[in-house]
Design a binder for these strands. Structure first.
Length: 261
DNA sequence: ATGGTCGCCACGCGA
């Protein structure tokens, strides 16, 4: 089972790029972030005609997440537990059954800029809720893949120019510590362990501004976290860097993992 | 030091 994450920065603007990527990706399950659409506005028929089951958790204008799956999506839940007053659409979960059942958790973690400030407070509070919920996912002992746009640069080598991000919510010590506190529960960062002693990158995001792509001034903020049971079945992982060079690209590229499940 | 680019949706906001 191949499972991918793609922050598409507007599903309506990305129908072409997303369709093209899907045609060559051989993915079974794809979680999307920043669909920037309400549920009714999602091009459900377009992707349905291509054989995808679609579950969305949309929002007007901003945010919004979705899951596309070739296999049926079961036990779908929307929203991150822990705060009934949080009305931002950033989290969706579903189970996909291939050779084995895999729990898929798709997330769009708050950006948090400017920091300090209320947006950064929201980011850290959201990460604390994610930490608590992630622990319950691990306790389930299911195969779990928790993936998406984490909006956190884990380490200096995950940025082309780490010094540029020193004051940014994506790289502040508290953001990195909060991500580590989740990882250290026992999650496996699939792209990182592929080559644990490698140098910089691979990157998953290049800003539209300032020619960041042409300078390869990127960061790694889209992550695949695997439960130990899922990591045992990991056979391959990758970052589809070439998607950033396509027509009308998102500022993020897909990341993916293949499980023997 | 500043402005640089997108998407959404029709204006400024969020990233």
């Amino acid at each position: 089972m191949k499972i991918a994450s793609f922050n598409i920065n507007g599903v309506k603007a990305r129908i072409g790029a997303l369709t093209d990527w899907l045609a060559g990706a051989d993915a079974d399950v794809v979680v999307l972030q920043e669909i920037k659409s309400v549920d009714e506005g999602f091009p459900r028929e377009h992707f349905g005609d291509l054989g995808w089951n679609v579950e969305t958790h949309g929002q007007k204008g901003f945010n919004g997440v979705a899951i596309l799956s070739k296999l049926p999506l079961e036990d779908v839940t929307r929203g991150l537990p822990g705060d009934e007053t949080d009305d931002q659409s950033r989290y969706i979960e579903a189970t996909v059954v291939g050779d084995r059942a895999v729990r898929i958790a798709g997330l769009y973690l708050p950006n948090g800029n400017p920091a300090p400030g209320p947006k950064y407070d929201y980011k850290l509070a959201w990460m604390e809720r994610l930490r608590v919920h992630a622990a319950s996912l691990l306790a389930s002992e299911m195969l779990v893949v928790m993936l998406g746009d984490y909006n956190v640069i884990p380490e200096p080598r995950d940025a082309a120019k780490p010094e540029k991000w020193a004051e940014d919510a994506l790289f502040l010590p508290a953001s990195r510590a909060a991500l580590r506190s989740i990882l250290w529960q026992g999650w496996i960062d699939a792209v990182r362990i592929r080559d644990p002693w490698a140098g910089r990158g691979p990157f998953t995001f290049w800003d539209y501004q300032g020619g960041a792509w042409n300078r390869d001034d990127g960061i790694r903020i889209d992550h695949l976290l695997l439960s130990p049971q899922a990591a045992d079945l990991m056979v391959e992982t990758g970052v589809d860097r070439e998607a950033r060079a396509g027509e009308k690209p998102s500022d993020h590229v897909p990341v993916w993992v293949r499980l023997a499940a």
